[in-house]
Design a protein around this nucleic acid. Structure first.
Lengths: 193, 193
DNA sequence: AGTCATTTATGACCTTGGTCATTTTTTATA
DNA sequence: TATAAAAAATGACCAAGGTCATAAATGACT
């Protein structure tokens, strides 16, 4: 199965170069032709791997989904609220690290979510992962049980992304985290129980 | 000042026809050339009025900003929480009424907000209007004073949009409103004070 | 009215995302 | 190894967004 290997390697090559170039020059300033040239393939071939230019980003967004699980796994114990807060902290950190890129994936992600109601994107993933975390925590320790994980996860996701969208351009990572922390504090007594 | 009248009328004509056509055929299935033709102007002229195709939508989004003030004015009294809830209700109703269109403006709005951190868009507007409402309510009636309107408005905006994004494709207006209502309920004891 | 400066309209043109019929490469089979 | 079928690569081609030099329209001033 030489074919499958090659396919995989080409796919990787495209994403690697594309992201690199997006980061350097900005999404709109990189043409598909340039990406293809950098990868040593024809423009048409690019579209054999990704139906639209944006799909490179959606593909990346998907890979962040498993990352969400990793982050959750990194904070296995302590009070649920603390765990959630630490998770948000890590997430925010990754966001600010890869800012340019995540800004883009965030847009495409939201776009895909709104236009097609597709499930497989970041926000839904994020929310689902959080909901599962809350459910699991409740099962393992009855004192941590939330009355409505669906609702609680929704609120948390909402405040996280809203803050990210509204503040990302005018505040430092610490500032944003502070805002998220205060919001979670304020909100927790309502949703945590 | 014939010129100014004409300019204004052309601008209006473009937005009217464009929105009409977007609603009928979908944003991507309407070309700028078609819009121009419908308006009796040349394609180039379109771009004299709007730098990009999407800006027609941003323009509309802006007009919804004042609509936000109207809605707020429509609910001048009662307990703050009730007012907020009724405002969200009206807003959601408008959203579902004009669903196709608002979906589009929502995307462009979020996009603009993320990429350029521009202030003059829907989400910031929404949040600001809500914050002002909360501040005003506190000034008029000390019992209604919130400790942190900035924070409270952020939470409310967050849960509203998050719910809209996540549920809009799979729930009725009532279902979505129900979810928003429950979330506000849960959250209010934390932010309302 | 005639002239000039400024604004607005125009359409030829360019760029780039995306399609598709055709060619090339890979795999399976005899 | 020869051959046929399937998959993948290719580049000519198209459509549509966006630019720009030029032309027309408008307004101010004499």
């Amino acid at each position: 199965m030489l074919r499958d290997q090659k396919k995989k390697s080409t796919r990787e090559k495209i994403t690697r170069y594309a992201l690199q170039m997006f980061k350097e020059k900005g999404y709109d300033n990189v043409t598909v032709e340039e990406i293809a040239a950098a990868c040593g393939i024809a423009k048409g071939t690019f579209f054999n791997y990704f139906p639209k230019k944006e799909h490179v980003l959606l593909y990346v967004a998907d890979s962040y989904a498993s990352l969400m699980d990793d982050i959750i796994a990194r904070h296995p114990d302590g009070p649920l609220k603390q765990r959630v807060l630490r998770i948000l902290h890590d997430l925010l950190h990754i966001y600010t690290q890869h800012e340019e890129l995540l800004r883009l994936t965030l847009i495409e992600t939201i776009k895909a979510e709104i236009v097609s109601g597709s499930e497989l994107t970041n926000i839904s993933n994020f929310k689902n992962a959080l909901r599962r975390l809350m459910e699991d925590a409740g099962e393992q320790d009855p004192r941590q049980r939330l009355s409505d994980p669906e609702l609680s996860s929704g609120v948390v996701v909402g405040l996280f992304f809203q803050t990210l969208i509204t503040l990302s351009s005018k505040m430092s990572e610490d500032g944003i985290y502070g805002s998220i922390e205060r919001q979670l504090d304020a909100v927790w007594e309502g949703i945590g129980r």
